[in-house]
Design a protein around this nucleic acid. Structure first.
Lengths: 133, 133
DNA sequence: TGCAATTCCTACTAAAATGGTAGTATAATA
DNA sequence: TATTATACTACCATTTTAGTAGGAATTGCA
């Protein structure tokens, strides 16, 4: 039940961008990777996920980098984590048809689904704004 | 953020034992593995974890098997999952000293700790009794 | 006493996920 | 045109997961 570095790093990057939001300037991955001590190349891959989700305003080339496309309070942490980690269901079969041939397993479905709901409610109750200032 | 089969199977087995609690008889792994369609050998390994945690009354040999040592309502699901999955912290550094050299990462500590708390509260709010009858 | 059934224990392993790295292409700007 | 940045694809070492295999120890019963 661990969150991988993808989700954790994504949150860190998004917080950095949120802190930079009011300046209106682009923040490069080089700056972020040096400040946060995270591999530049690995960050690039994570940014692709965030970019595909339309979270970012990107500028390539000299003095380029990333900016948030919306205000920090518009980004729910849950959205950031789901984009980088996949859904936050504690079991694969949640939200699927669930062919598992485990008799008693299906009796535990409501329990796991309840946990899923708690997790989603928590991560969706916070936004990037909660991490700045 | 997935629960592994260890924790899921452990819950299934413990529910089967809870359902068998009032009979006072031992339930063998062979019966459980056939009913639940889970590998006997894999279950053996999971039982070792539950056994070390003093959750079980064991009888070896002919007609042997496992029984709950306490009443079903005395087993919090959280305890079962922590024994088989390790702690349920979404990050390794929660509850540890946390040398991670990631500047902004530590600012996210309260967020992750809050999620940890939500997860623990949920899984500790249910017992085996909630799964029988 | 001997056999069958059961748990206990250790070692091994294939497949998948994790956490990256490397190299190149593309784009923007000075 | 040189520099600096992102975009994309391919690769890879390590760890975790989800088992499997084989035998030792224990108990009940004929």
């Amino acid at each position: 039940m661990k969150m991988s570095t993808r989700g954790r790093y994504a949150l860190v990057v998004m917080i950095d961008l949120a802190k930079n939001y009011n300046t209106g300037e682009y923040l490069s991955l080089k700056e972020i990777s040096e400040k946060e001590n995270i591999s530049l190349k690995y960050l690039e891959k994570i940014m692709m996920l965030l970019n595909k989700a339309k979270f970012l305003d990107v500028s390539r080339g000299n003095n380029g980098g990333y900016r948030l496309i919306k205000e920090p309070k518009e980004y729910k942490i849950g959205d950031i984590l789901r984009v980088t980690e996949g859904n936050l269901a504690p079991l694969k079969c949640l939200g699927k048809s669930g062919e598992c041939s485990k008799r008693t397993m299906c009796e535990t479905f409501p329990f796991w689904n309840g946990l899923y709901k708690e997790i989603n409610e928590y991560v969706d109750s916070k936004t990037l704004e909660d991490f700045i200032g």
